[in-house]
Design a protein around this nucleic acid. Sequence first.
DNA 1: CGGTGTTTTGAATTCCTTCAAATTATGTGG
DNA 2: CCACATAATTTGAAGGAATTCAAAACACCG
Lengths: 243, 243
Amino acid sequence: MSSALHRKLQLYAPLSGADHGQLSNAMRQTRHVNARTDIAVEGDDPRTMYIILHGWAGRCRHLRDGRRQITSLLLPGDCCDPHVFLFHRRDHTITALTPVVIASIPGPAFKDLVAQSPVLESAFFYETMIAGSIQREVAVSLGRRSGLERLAHLLCELHTRQTAVALAEGQNCLMPLNQGDLADALGQTPVHINRMLQELRRLGLISLRQRHLTIHDADGLAELAHFDSTYLHALDTAQKGEN
Amino acid sequence: MSSALHRKLQLYAPLSGADHGQLSNAMRQTRHVNARTDIAVEGDDPRTMYIILHGWAGRCRHLRDGRRQITSLLLPGDCCDPHVFLFHRRDHTITALTPVVIASIPGPAFKDLVAQSPVLESAFFYETMIAGSIQREVAVSLGRRSGLERLAHLLCELHTRQTAVALAEGQNCLMPLNQGDLADALGQTPVHINRMLQELRRLGLISLRQRHLTIHDADGLAELAHFDSTYLHALDTAQKGEN
DNA sequence: CGGTGTTTTGAATTCCTTCAAATTATGTGG
DNA sequence: CCACATAATTTGAAGGAATTCAAAACACCG
């Protein structure tokens, strides 16, 4: 039974058949979550780690006056903090942005899992490092890219990440977020997201209909976005050399 | 011999005398770096981990057209990626923002260090997790806080982080960044940083002279900034309950 | 004491937001 | 399968936050 996480960890380290089996076993407990529903809430005791099997979720921080920032987007195969157990208190909320299916791994079970296999342990470690790298690139986008560049950059990233876990078909992939969620991820207003989307379409770079994205001009989009996939390391499966 | 890192790791886990000794031993190789000089450059083979002993550095990403984003500020006691060894290529540059003294720990030496002591290993892990948490809060600031709020928030954070490693004296601490570097950390222009600093002073919240910061009204500053120190976990030494 | 870098000021412009309304999709029960 | 309610997208116009450009004032260092 191969999930997006299996495929992704395989990109990081050569998992054995036993590793895959142990991983499947640990992930056997699953749960369906409706769209716009919290999976884990700020302040919770973070005893459990979640893995996205289907659908998209977001790591969210809320300010008291209602402003929301989605600090990261979680796609199938992504882990919600493989190592949160170290903290005694969640510092952010995980919310389902579409209908989602998650696997839950209790802290002790995860510890057992990685204790049994150094390869699996380092693969999960690599996953944590990549998440950090993506998080830094978010800061670059929010801090130094214009609205148009930001949106272009996010689309490049989402396509690359989905390609890595075999969820893209050529230049097509899912982009199920509505413009409000995109706005919260990119630090802008829905109205402006709307205008930037129209601009990307007008430039002939993308199509986005019915939650499906097609990239018509990958090079043009990447150039506009200043997208350099180095920060995605092993997730950039079209990489030139080493990850 | 106690460094800021010793003090910080002690906040995360109860290090033994032997742990402190091993750590000091691993950190014995030090290097002075001039201000505005790169410590480690994007594209490098990341074989070595660095620890800031004195001075401030920044993790920087550069866009081709010269824009720069400082994704994180590295203060004394901070580690430049305790686990970069997993990647084959640095995806960002570490630059000294002031004159800096760093300790260098080669990858293998670091692996030996944490292999010998589970407590030390989990303390370094905790450090990585905190860095991630801070990185997420950067996204919140850049995405959803106004210029004034961002600056206020950063000052709250820097004061808290310095307090954690005994580098603050009451409401006073260092803030050696110039307005250009602040701008690159906060995703704004130096001119605007200047105006926001004046505004914080005018509101009677802070003084900032000769690279020394004094917070006159910590509650007022925190409220303006929407600063909630939860995300700093054990670094918030004035924390109410558990980290 | 003069040169260099940093901070400050002003004015014009740009990007993005805000607010409000119209239009188009989406989903549900009859 | 259509009618209706609800949510999402799109449009327009006005306002605001931050940038840009340029110059002046100030600090710092040898």
